[in-house]
């Protein structure tokens, strides 16, 4: 029988994968994709909690929908930035993007 903890485990694994990608990937596009993974792991958690813990309230599912919308907007901005940086600096490597420091 598949229960809440299974969903949470999947979510945690997905979050860990995303986090790993966020911290290790050199490509800006890959980093953005990792962030999407992490967001989706959160969505899984929310939906799972909504299904198992508060069955009569749809709040968790509504949250997920919001997060999907926000993530879409975020990725649009992120990709636009990546594109702008690529045009301006001819790179997508996050290692080289350190010009906002002191």
């Amino acid at each position: 029988m598949i229960g809440l903890s299974h969903y949470l485990l999947v979510g945690a694994a997905l979050f860990g994968l995303g986090l790993f990608g966020l911290l290790t990937k050199r490509n800006l596009i890959a980093v953005l994709m990792s962030i999407e993974l992490m967001l989706n792991s959160v969505n899984i958690n929310l939906v799972a909690f909504s299904r198992f813990s508060a069955t009569d309230a749809a709040a968790g599912q509504v949250f997920s929908l919001f997060i999907i919308a926000v993530a879409a907007a975020e990725v649009a901005v992120g990709l636009a930035l990546a594109y702008a940086i690529y045009r301006g600096r001819d790179t997508v490597s996050v290692d080289e993007m350190n010009w906002l420091k002191w």
Binding site: T24, V94, N98, K101
Partner: peptide, 8 residues
């Protein structure tokens, strides 16, 4: 020194 500019 902690402020490297590296987002990661």
């Amino acid at each position: 020194r902690f402020q490297t500019g590296q987002t990661q």
